[in-house]
Simulated scan of single mutants.
Amino acid sequence: MALRTRAVLVHRRTELDELLDRHATRGQAEFFLRTRGRTLADVESRHEAAVSARRAVAASVPSDWALAEVERADLDRFLFAPEDVVLVVGQDGLVANAAKYLDRQLVVGVDPEPGTNLGVLVRHDADAVAGIIAALTNPPGRAGAAPSAVRCDELTMVRARLDDGQELRAVNELFLGHASHQSARYVLTVDGTAERQSSSGLIVSTGTGATGWSASIAHDRGGRRLPGPTEQALAWFVREAWPSPATGATLTEGMLGDDGELVVTVQSDRLVVFGDGMEGDRLEVSWGQEVRIGVAERRLRLV
């Protein structure tokens, strides 16, 4: 028996939702915005656009598909199924937030405000979703398959694996260091060469993230080549490595191939690993623990 396809609509609370939670009434929210040179009308307009886009996307889902909705804050508690088609209505960052919980499900990034948020990961307006869904067929035994009529990019992800089995993945980049970005001490091992370091942390970037945090670092270091989004490679940088009698600053940047790894042995208390700027969703690493960072086995399958 063929599995029933489910569309999962991922979204986040709008600014209006959060303002009303904080200020209780529209009048108080309007006063708060006015003190900052903004208007409630603009915030309400964007809220209505987001709600309208979610309704349009939901209406595009065929009647023989199941439909579920999940907010960003609940992603870590939501159970995705292999046959799901994930419809992310929001900005690029929301697609990245969802990707770490997925395992090869098809993802469609949808702009809630036509022409405003189209980017690297959000590639479609809400009006295009019906056509994309119509082109998605699910032959028996191949739930979630992408037909040739729909182009699907398989974007490389980065993963960190702790020696206790915990893992974290990211679409753009991973950060390893102190939560406050002060000096972190560790031993970094790359290709069999080890160096004890004190730095403000490591950034390990995919090609998708090569236009963000790592682009700034690469620019400051003379324009190191960064990988492409589908290239099975990662760029890594050590930030502000401090040379001293006890620490070195030789291993500060490089590229990792599909089978390469950075091995970090922690020599500080309570360092953190987080991805895509989501500091709240992180792994905590204590003295003596080992972290291995490399190309993730999973890919983001983006329509």
Rank of each mutant, 00 (worst) to 15 (best):
G119T: 06
F175H: 05
S63E: 05
T35H: 05
A160P: 07
E71A: 10
A149D: 04
D163A: 03
V171H: 01
P147K: 05
P112N: 11
T39S: 09
R151L: 10
A126I: 11
T35N: 01
V122N: 13
L94C: 08
N138G: 09
V122C: 12
V95H: 11
Q166L: 13
V150N: 06
E113G: 12
S45H: 14
V150T: 14
N97G: 09
P140W: 14
R54Y: 00
R142M: 10
G119R: 08
G109D: 04
A96K: 00
D111H: 04
D111Q: 02
A143N: 06
V110D: 07
N117M: 14
A73S: 11
N97A: 13
A41Y: 03
Y101K: 15
T156Y: 01
A134W: 02
E48D: 02
G90S: 09
S52H: 01
P114R: 13
G37Y: 02
I132P: 03
G93P: 13
V95N: 06
D125G: 14
D84P: 02
E167Q: 15
R77F: 00
A126C: 14
C152W: 15
C152I: 15
E69Q: 10
G119H: 08
I132D: 02
V70M: 01
A53F: 00
L174H: 06
D153N: 12
P114L: 10
E48G: 01
R34D: 03
E44I: 08
P147W: 09
T35G: 00
A130L: 08
S63K: 08
R169G: 13
P147D: 12
D76A: 14
A99K: 10
G144H: 10
A170I: 07
R104V: 13
T39P: 03
R46E: 06
G109I: 12
A146C: 15
V89C: 14
S60E: 00
D125M: 05
P140L: 15
A170M: 12
A128S: 12
T39Q: 02
G93Q: 10
G141K: 06
A81E: 15
S45F: 11
V158Q: 01
V95W: 08
T156A: 08
R46D: 03
L75G: 11
L155E: 03
L118T: 11
T137L: 09
L136S: 04
L162D: 05
R54N: 04
G165L: 05
D164N: 15
A49M: 04
G115Q: 14
V129P: 07
D153W: 10
D127N: 14
G141L: 08
V171C: 12
A126Y: 10
A56D: 06
Q91N: 10
Q166Y: 12
L118R: 14
R123M: 12
E71T: 11
L79H: 12
A96N: 02
L106M: 11
G165N: 07
P139H: 07
H47A: 08
A149I: 05
R169Q: 10
E113V: 15
A56F: 00
N172P: 05
I133S: 03
R54S: 04
A50R: 06
R123T: 13
D84H: 03
E44H: 05
D164I: 09
Y101E: 14
R54L: 07
S148A: 15
P139R: 07
V158Y: 01
A145P: 00
V51Q: 04
L79W: 09
H47P: 09
D76R: 07
L118S: 08
N172D: 04
E154D: 12
R142F: 11
P112H: 13
A98I: 09
D111I: 05
N97V: 02
R77M: 02
G165C: 07
